[in-house]
Design a protein around this nucleic acid. Structure first.
Lengths: 339, 339
DNA sequence: CTGAAAGCGCTAACAT
DNA sequence: ATGTTAGCGCTTTCAG
């Protein structure tokens, strides 16, 4: 339990010098700096983050708030954020809102306000003006992923663009009867992401002179199972069968591929399927997809926070930063079979 | 930024009384307690965890150290731990060792020692004696999941028993030619878990008078893709084809099912498949499995920690606590077809 | 470039 | 039951 005084005594300097030598703030001669380092190492000294935080008002810790933990997307974002934070010497404390209303209140009213974090990353969470206000009033920067959030710097992909991109790929291959599997109102928590992707899909169809057919839309959960059932409904329906399906997530797309296999429909010969995410399973299923890079999003969020926390670094101006997505063509999409 | 002195002034009492009233330590009359609460609420006072930690030596924060984040198991454990911790008023800070050696050292030498956590939960991490020693020397309890760890209270499933249970289920159905897909030496990080499951498998076979056949074992990654390729190798091999396969994880088992489907082998008519985990996809694939309950393991780990942190609670005595597993029979296993 | 000393905001004896 | 007060371990003016 060596403290700063032990190190000071050992190095024959004052605690103030130890503090400066180790933190790099203020000027210390190279010689004493070296002596201090050696002394610290020899007694295994590590600063107490509490004492340091109390004195400086900074915690070197940031809070990450998420709605679930068990979806691929969140794990990837957190993973990216975590390693970026660690490289800046920050810790990450996790607040999972899985529990619902009560838990959410408790997180915002107590946990985040205990002065334990310097800033907050909110992942696909529609914060209320009150929640944002409290944090900002305490001087804690926020960055949102999956925004936009009023008055908050956010990072988000262009979901309308994603819907367009996927659909245009299909149209470009020559498909004209294209179904869409997306989210329903229940899954609207995430900033209307499902609605936006659907809007992009319809826009692309319309631009290509194809009239969107409401019968070619199925709502589903954002899971393999959801995609499977929706896929079954679409592929079994008695109306005209689509030659291509745009699923709003890779998991749904994989479910759709499984449904097609079960019905003896070949992918991509009889049916093209495209998803969104570049999920860890996408490559295995040969799924063509619009990749978003969640780990990269986590890293970016951290960089934005560092900009706000260290005014020396220059700020970005835009409030909502668009995130790069990319069409990844694999083997689940192809030209429709000749009639 | 209301502090404890503001609340004290407002309530007309000393800061000591405010501290006692709000923390519940020491006796405060119900009347003043109420006045303090009101005063605190009116100015939006929340204790500074740093100041509090510095004074008490306790942080109300625990560190969770994991090797990866993007596997189903880890997400589930963390999720369970997180909500249990929150209900005890604790925060969770996450240390992901994904980066490898250097990152691991940095976590143990700096992050965990900054006096920011009261205790550590290590998930499927084989801590070195040195790592354990440092933590314990600082008075920080550790509990391991997926143990056992020398000198550390751990929680783990009986992997040999799991292998036995799965295999006995298959034998009980009448199978005699049973293949196994497990991990190879490379995946041995996790406490020889793959080896133990394989040992249980062989033990069950031997007990039933079946001679284990090394040709019926395939090593693979613990993923759907790994299981798929291993399944393909087994099912395509020219030797005698097994009527059942025990995969060491559900993801592998699912991969195996997909391989069987591709070869036109029906599950369970032509081939029974059993896994381990009760993964979120297990139900969708109708997979029979040996369920382990990771979220519950996370909660249990927290309870064990609370026992150590609050000596008032009574301790368990065992160092390695076995965790409950359960055979869940679904539709991927059945009696072998009559010959 | 280095030292002395005053806090940071709270808790826990010790009194009363 | 409540108040007084001495720290907890570090950082940061302010001097020198």
């Amino acid at each position: 339990m060596a403290g700063i005084t032990d190190v000071a005594a050992l190095a024959g300097v004052s605690t103030a010098t130890v503090s400066r030598a180790l933190s790099g703030n203020g000027h210390v001669s190279e010689a004493t700096k070296e002596r201090v380092r050696a002394a610290a190492a020899s007694v295994g000294y590590v600063v107490s983050s509490n004492a340091s935080s109390l004195a400086t008002g900074r915690t070197k810790n940031i809070g990450v708030v998420i709605p679930y933990l068990n979806r691929w997307f969140y794990g990837a974002v957190i993973s990216g954020a975590e390693s970026a934070l660690m490289s800046h010497g920050y810790d990450l404390t996790l607040y999972n809102l899985q529990g619902g209303g009560e838990e959410r209140r408790s997180v915002f009213e107590h946990f985040l306000l205990r002065k334990r974090v310097d800033a907050v990353i909110a992942i696909t969470l529609e914060l209320t003006a009150d929640e944002v206000g409290r944090l900002l009033a305490l001087g804690k920067p926020i960055v949102g992923i999956g925004g936009p959030l009023p008055g908050v710097r956010t990072l988000s992909i262009d979901d309308v663009g994603v819907g367009r991109l996927a659909t245009e790929h299909l149209i470009g291959l020559g498909h004209t009867v294209i179904a869409h599997i997306g989210g329903d109102k229940a899954s609207e928590t995430d900033f209307h992401m499902p609605t936006s992707r659907r809007a992009g899909h319809y826009a692309a169809l319309t631009d290509a002179g194809i009239t969107p057919d409401p019968k070619l839309f199925e709502a589903a959960d954002f899971t393999i199972e959801g995609g499977y059932h929706a896929g079954l409904r679409i592929l079994r329906s008695l109306g005209r069968r689509p030659t291509a399906i745009f699923a709003a997530s890779d998991e749904m797309a994989i479910g759709t591929i499984l449904a097609a296999r079960e019905l003896g429909i070949r992918v991509p010969e009889d049916l093209s399927v495209i998803g969104v995410d570049d999920h860890e399973l996408a490559n295995f299923f040969g799924l063509t997809t619009v990749a978003q890079y969640p780990a990269r999003q986590g890293e970016l969020a951290v960089e934005m926070l560092m900009d706000e926390l260290h005014p020396a670094r220059r700020h970005r101006n835009e409030l909502d930063t668009p995130v790069h997505v990319e069409l990844l063509v694999r083997s689940s999409t192809a030209r429709p079979a000749a009639r």
